[in-house]
Amino acid sequence: MHSSSSSSSSAASVVVPGATFWSRSLTRLLRGSGWLLLGLCALLAVLSYHGFTVYCENFGCIYLGLIWMVWGVLAGVGLVMALLVRAWQRHRGFSTRASSWAVVLLLAMGAGHLLYWLVTTALR
């Protein structure tokens, strides 16, 4: 019996190292990344609004094309990042509400832009 009490006291005295600075920072980043992705969605909505209100005349058409290209690249990269972040958050057991909303918004905006492009350009 003496040996069982000594083993339980030695097990209780084992020191478990705390989380490092990097793991705490990574956890904070992972928790807040969904909100950063929603911020990207807001930025894309503003850029989209600006693109739809630009009048196409002379160099305005080139500017409009650049806006659409920048929007497409940001939306594509944002969608890939949102899918990766959401999968990583699920793997770590965090809430995925914000990142899931970001995925839905990015898909909806992308589908809307594609539909607009098809109606105004390709199906004309």
Rank of each mutant, 00 (worst) to 15 (best):
A42K: 04
L30S: 12
L40W: 01
L26S: 14
L30N: 07
W35H: 13
L40P: 05
L44A: 03
L36W: 05
L38C: 05
S48I: 00
S33M: 03
R28N: 09
G39T: 09
S23Q: 15
R28Q: 10
L38M: 14
L30V: 01
R24V: 07
A42V: 09
Y49Q: 13
F52V: 09
L37E: 06
G32D: 10
S33D: 11
S23K: 13
Y49R: 12
S48D: 11
G39N: 13
W35D: 10
G32P: 10
L40T: 03
L30Y: 02
T27E: 15
F52G: 15
L26T: 09
L44D: 03
H50V: 11
L37M: 07
G51V: 00
H50G: 01
T53S: 12
A45G: 11
S48M: 10
L36Y: 05
G51F: 00
L43R: 15
L26E: 14
V46K: 08
T27L: 14
W35E: 12
L43S: 12
R28S: 12
A45R: 05
V46R: 12
L36R: 13
R28Y: 08
G39C: 10
A42M: 05
S48R: 04
G34V: 03
S25W: 03
L40Y: 01
S25H: 07
T53Q: 06
R31L: 10
R24N: 08
S25R: 14
G32Y: 02
Y49V: 15
L26W: 05
L36C: 11
H50N: 07
L36M: 14
R24M: 12
R24I: 06
T53C: 02
L29W: 09
R28D: 06
L47G: 04
S25E: 09
S25P: 00
S48K: 02
Y49W: 10
S33P: 06
L44I: 02
R24D: 04
G32V: 01
C41D: 11
V46D: 06
L47Q: 11
A42I: 05
V46P: 00
Y49K: 08
S25L: 15
L30W: 02
G39E: 12
C41I: 02
Y49N: 11
